[in-house]
């Protein structure tokens, strides 16, 4: 059966320097596997150069049964490459929570801080693909 890809987007507003934003996002019932993710700055910051790290991200899946992702979020001053999703293979339980946090680590003075938005894109599939099945049984 052909797989059907759905993108789940979790948006986080960062309004204070050093803010720790909690993530609690319920995935729809029909999603069966998460096959990739990207976490990126969406809007708010305007900088001339790239920054390797503006914050830290932690994500757990299936209502805290699986801690799977620790990643940094950076800033891209201009787009030079199509982002290839970081591959994962996370079987999803029906309609469970994705939880975690995003913590701002950008070192600026309080007066220089500007609010910004970070988006987490989860590439999910409605059906478990053949590749995903192979991985889960090894």
């Amino acid at each position: 059966m052909a797989t059907k890809i759905r993108y789940q987007i979790i948006q986080i507003e960062v309004n204070e320097q050093g803010q720790i934003a909690e993530i609690s996002h319920k995935l729809p019932l029909h999603l069966k596997v998460c096959t990739g993710f990207i976490a990126r700055h969406t809007k708010g910051l305007t900088l001339a150069n790239d920054l390797n790290e503006i914050g830290l991200l932690a994500l757990e899946f299936n209502s805290r049964k699986q801690l799977l992702i620790n990643a940094m979020v950076g800033f891209e001053s201009k787009v030079e490459q199509l982002p290839d999703y970081q591959e994962v293979n996370i079987p999803l339980e029906n309609g469970q929570l994705v939880t975690g946090y995003y913590m701002d680590t950008k070192q600026v003075s309080v007066s220089d801080f500007k609010p910004y938005v970070v988006s987490i894109y989860l590439r999910c599939e409605l059906e478990v693909s053949i590749e995903a099945k192979e991985c889960t049984t090894t």
């Binding site: 990739g36 993710f37 790239d50 920054l51 891209e76 030079e80 490459q81 290839d84 999703y85 970081q86």
Partner: peptide, 10 residues
Amino acid sequence: CGHQVAPNMK
């Protein structure tokens, strides 16, 4: 690697 490298290649 730099930020311009795709997440899956880092």
